[in-house]
Simulated scan of single mutants.
Amino acid sequence: MSKAFTKETDSDEDDDLSLPPLPSGSRNYITPQGYQRLRAELLHLIDNERPKIVEIVHWAASNGDRSENGDYLYGKKRLREIDRRIRFLTKRLDIAEVADPSLHHGNDQVFFGATVTYENQAGVERTITIKGIDEVDNLQGEVSWISPIARALLKSRVGDEVQLMTPGGLERLEILEVRYPAPETAH
């Protein structure tokens, strides 16, 4: 039989491919804001997005021949994507451990949630924020707590020098500043 006529599966096999790997036996740390963002996305998919697509697929299916019905074919594909994302978010939120970085406000030691400014041997300063693997935005200077740079910085203090193994060799970094968000005050 030709590969063109094989049925596409809706298996869970591909779900695990999109899960960023956690170190064996470690926790899935996430900030309270990151947790809320993922939870809001999950609820939006379940309450809004999925019902709309189900309605479109139902309408398109009632129009007869499904083999050349673009609305039906696209709708089914989009439904699989939504269901896959719902499964992913559900799994990740189930194993998430919310860690509030504001508890360390005023501390000069690097823990999860810290915003760290460091300088390399060439005198170049860089600022990063250490976050959970499901919430990082590299374009905003955020790195996962399991990344090599975060692992090198964790538990160090302002004034410490840490070593980071890079593709270009060993690099020394000096910790210049450590900041945490201020705790939210109750009104």
Score class of each variant (00 low, 15 high):
Asp100Pro: 13
Glu119Gly: 07
Ile133Gln: 04
Glu119Phe: 00
Thr117Tyr: 02
Val124Phe: 02
Lys131Ser: 13
His104Asp: 15
Ile133Leu: 06
His105Asn: 15
Asn120Arg: 02
Gln140Tyr: 04
Ser102Trp: 05
Phe111Cys: 14
Gln140Pro: 05
Gln109Glu: 13
Ser102Thr: 03
Asn120Pro: 15
Gly113Ala: 07
Phe111Val: 12
Ile130Leu: 12
Asp108Arg: 00
Ala99Tyr: 05
Gln121Gly: 06
Ala114Ser: 13
Thr127Gln: 07
Gly113Pro: 14
Ala114Lys: 00
Asp137Pro: 01
Thr129His: 03
Leu139Val: 08
Asp108Val: 03
Ala114Met: 10
Tyr118Lys: 03
Lys131Ile: 09
Asp134Asn: 14
Thr127Gly: 03
Ala96Asn: 09
Glu135His: 12
Gly113Arg: 02
Ala96Lys: 08
Thr127Tyr: 01
Thr129Glu: 11
Thr115Leu: 04
Phe111Ser: 12
His104Trp: 05
Gly123Lys: 00
Ser102Cys: 09
Asp100Gly: 14
Tyr118Gln: 05
Leu103Asp: 12
Val116Phe: 04
Lys131Pro: 08
Gly113Thr: 02
Ile133Trp: 00
Tyr118Ala: 00
Glu125Gln: 09
Val136His: 07
Ala122Gly: 00
Tyr118Asn: 03
Gly113Ile: 01
Thr115Tyr: 02
Gln140Leu: 12
Gly132Tyr: 05
Asn107Val: 10
Asp134Gly: 14
Asp108Gln: 09
Thr117Arg: 05
Thr129Ala: 03
